[in-house]
């Protein structure tokens, strides 16, 4: 994933700040990763390397931890975030096929983000509306009975929205303004 303009500085500043406010020991690795992710939205490789350096553990260990827990994401959240439910009910109703349809449409795999950062795709466990299986959460909206045809519809709507916002305004700034760091 290519870093946005200014993102590198942002990452370095963020990691510095988090490290200086936490004792730099191994036991603190999880809270440190959590704090960095809250600020940056994800755990960029550069952040993981700097954290590893800061608390003196091999980067491979930080990577191991970040890939073990579902709460950590290694790719930035897209402008549109799609979460496909693969809980028991949704899985039985074909949630995996829904996920595959999104993967094909977005040309990314589950847990990835498109290079333009417009879309990110995740799998989640039961979101609590099994009667509507297979369920997908698009940004904050819950969509039920999402068949591959419905996936096409959702993607179409998202694409239209993107085109519109492109016309209305200049390309957006990277979503992480340095103000957010304060």
């Amino acid at each position: 994933m290519q870093l946005l303009e200014g993102e590198k500085e942002l990452i370095l500043a963020c990691v510095d700040e988090v490290l200086s406010n936490n004792s730099k020991n191994r036991e603190n690795l999880i809270p440190i990763l959590q704090k960095v992710q809250v600020r940056l939205g994800y755990l960029p490789p550069l952040a993981m390397e700097k954290i590893a350096e800061g608390i003196k553990v091999p980067p491979a260990d930080v990577y191991g931890l970040a890939t073990f827990y579902n709460q950590f994401r290694l790719n930035p959240p897209g402008k549109h975030q799609v979460k496909v439910c693969l809980g028991t009910a949704c899985y039985m109703a074909g949630g995996d096929i829904t996920l595959e349809s999104f993967e094909r449409r977005m040309k990314i795999k589950e847990s990835e983000t498109s290079p333009d950062r417009l879309y990110s795709l995740e799998r989640v466990a039961c979101v609590g509306c099994c009667t509507m299986a297979p369920v997908v959460v698009v940004d904050e909206e819950v969509e039920g009975k999402v068949t591959p045809t419905r996936v096409d519809g959702i993607m179409l709507a998202l694409n239209e929205e993107n085109d519109k916002s492109n016309l209305e305004q200049e390309p957006e700034q990277g979503r992480m303004d340095s103000d957010e760091l304060k």
Binding site: P45, P59, A60, Y63, G64
Partner: peptide, 21 residues
């Protein structure tokens, strides 16, 4: 004393690998 490899992922996807695979 290198720290080049470690375990990553979970469950069936668990692997021994390097930083960022």
């Amino acid at each position: 004393k290198t720290g080049a490899i470690g375990f990553a992922n979970r469950g069936l996807n668990r692997v021994v690998t390097t930083f960022r695979d």
